[in-house]
Design a protein around this nucleic acid. Sequence first.
DNA 1: CCCACCAATATTGTCAACAATAAAAATCCA
DNA 2: TGGATTTTTATTGTTGACAATATTGGTGGG
Lengths: 242, 242
Amino acid sequence: MDSVTLHREQDKDADKQAKPGRLVDQVLVELQTDIIRGELAPGSKINEQDIAQRFGISRGPAREALQALERQRLVVRAPHIGARVAHLTIEELNELYQLRSVLEAMACELAAKNITPEQLAKLKSLIKTQQAALASDDPYFQQQGDVDFHYQIIQASGNRHLQETLVGGLYHLLRMYRFQTSNRNRPVEAIAEHKAIVEAIAGGDGELAALLMRRHIERGRISTENKLKAMQQAEGLSSLNQ
Amino acid sequence: MDSVTLHREQDKDADKQAKPGRLVDQVLVELQTDIIRGELAPGSKINEQDIAQRFGISRGPAREALQALERQRLVVRAPHIGARVAHLTIEELNELYQLRSVLEAMACELAAKNITPEQLAKLKSLIKTQQAALASDDPYFQQQGDVDFHYQIIQASGNRHLQETLVGGLYHLLRMYRFQTSNRNRPVEAIAEHKAIVEAIAGGDGELAALLMRRHIERGRISTENKLKAMQQAEGLSSLNQ
DNA sequence: CCCACCAATATTGTCAACAATAAAAATCCA
DNA sequence: TGGATTTTTATTGTTGACAATATTGGTGGG
């Protein structure tokens, strides 16, 4: 009990911003980041008690965070057994991208109809930011820009169920694949493709935007698949040596 | 999730009987049914303590059940405020069916490639069952058959993310709309359309199956939309009289 | 009468302890 | 020794109590 109070007092001062919200929300983002970056390794067990101790909270909110992570496909839970970080497999990558391609193509078609001038301006400025960020050569920063690009189009679709399905259900797992494969995502080409997609949306040509998005995503899938294959091959070899 | 849990009939007399598994699983199916059938009215507040008392359990599992219902879009939750049964609106109906159409069309294309002989046989027998059930004139029984039909095609797609998105995320809300609009779903025509879809899948023509599915779903949407409009109009009139 | 403010109530959020179950370790027997 | 069985331990599932917050109802001033 004292540790909780102490932890909160610390939060107010420096460590993290004062968060008036629920503990589960504060814990969730940190666990998300840890899983996506692989600091919690794929397949590794996540203990409710450990999470609780790490954050100085009780098992209640920790358990709820794990349930939220399950919803986001980042962990797999089984009754009486517990939670494990999701495995990254080539089969699942392909299934995930197959679904993502269909959904984001849909988002493009809707965005071409429904996008607001503000959203369009934001998309265009995002492209400019990405072009400038190319010089930074920071893969995480670049990936963030890519994620934002797709996120903005999803928002512009105006379909709340589509938004919730993609952002709430698939996108975190997607980020996990891309981060852990160290996927630079062909930065130069990707930005050019982004630009073409935005232009199609701006011109109201949803069919073209959807086509370009499908191709864009397929190229990303191939790139990620190759990286993952190489990683898993290396992993297999190293495990033979033990 | 499998077809049994999707539409299991609750045993009304099993309050104190043998309870396998976790409390949240037992509570969840009953709450699902109550919400889908409107016994918990759309927009009504759901109190954690009330749920706990009703099922003779503590607030912990009751709370987890509400979180699961939120994932299924059947309730909307807000921090420190609580859970309410989802509202049925025409706008959301359209967004939901728009997404569903895209996803089930995708399921058809995949099913045409990946369906197993056993799954195909099950689909065909389902059609025969539905034709026989037409005589029964029981709308709930007929709807179950329709749900099963779509469920089987989703399973036959072989894409686990697609399955989870549709069955775990959208399908319960879909059932809610269809049940509460008392939608008979044009039984005679619907079964004919089902048959055509199965034949296209059996023939390996995913493109045709997807096209037929989109049309089938669009017809269902129109039917449901009309019913919902009539209901909301009646509701508006009656509320004027109070 | 209405609006702002404050007190009382109800509900959600959090916690620590206990129970039930699965995993791990130890034991026994062939 | 090896495999099955029992015991032990660790982890999840569940509970009731307490804390924090939102809602409701009341009160006073304009």
